[in-house]
């Protein structure tokens, strides 16, 4: 396409791509930015059966309606934000098509907003990732209080973040665009003891 616009992640200036494979002493934490995913903010009534069935028709999975839960399907990963609000993450560039599908299926009182440019996703993993999480957030990261698949809206280095546990030692952070540079600096600083590898 002519007139194409180059997409830039909020961490564009950090040039993470050129740092892949590089690590500081130890490399106990692995950082990966899942950039350019489509982020759709979805609002609706979780008691409305038509709303729930419409979502299921589009994504093939049930909307996670219990507090702090998530659901992953082939097309999308959906996390609970509030009793009437969810974040739907879809493949890069597919957000507009997904939004059209949602608008075709859903009726009545609902809202879909494309907020892809407003936030980015960091994946943190590695043998020392729990230590980084503990020093960054007041939440209890024990598996009993934070099992795999759970999502928690909390603070990360005092900045708001939605943290999803993907594996015992793997977390996904949804962070605001405006906080991303600060959090990138924080993560580098917080990993000084155990080392950081960009993947």
């Amino acid at each position: 396409m002519s007139n194409s616009i180059n997409m830039e992640s909020p961490l564009h200036h950090a040039q993470l791509d050129s740092l892949v494979g590089q690590s500081s002493a130890g490399g106990g934490v692995l950082l990966h930015e899942s950039k350019y995913l489509g982020h759709l903010n979805l609002r609706g009534n979780a008691q409305d059966v038509d709303f729930l069935s419409g979502i299921k028709k589009v994504f093939g999975i049930d909307l996670p309606t219990a507090p702090c839960t998530s659901a992953t399907g082939e097309l999308a990963q959906i996390i609970w934000l509030a009793p009437d609000e969810w974040l739907v993450m879809v493949g890069s560039g597919s957000e507009y098509d997904v939004e059209l599908k949602l608008r075709a299926q859903l009726k009545g009182h609902f809202a879909v907003s494309d907020i892809s440019g407003a936030q980015t996703i960091l994946e943190l993993s590695g043998s020392h990732v729990i230590e980084l999480m503990k020093k960054s957030s007041g939440y209890d990261f024990h598996l009993e209080s934070f099992p795999i698949g759970k999502v928690v809206g909390t603070t990360f280095a005092k900045a708001g973040a939605h943290i999803l546990r993907l594996e015992e030692n793997k977390f996904q952070l949804v962070i605001r665009r405006s906080f991303s540079d600060y959090i990138w600096l924080w993560i580098q600083h917080g990993c000084k003891e155990c080392g950081l590898t960009i993947v």
Partner: peptide, 18 residues
């Protein structure tokens, strides 16, 4: 630091979140 139970998240959370 207060521990506050959010009736929507159904969990005790740190005061810092509120």
């Amino acid at each position: 630091m207060l521990l506050i139970k959010c009736p929507y998240c159904e969990e005790q959370r740190e005061e810092e979140e509120f």
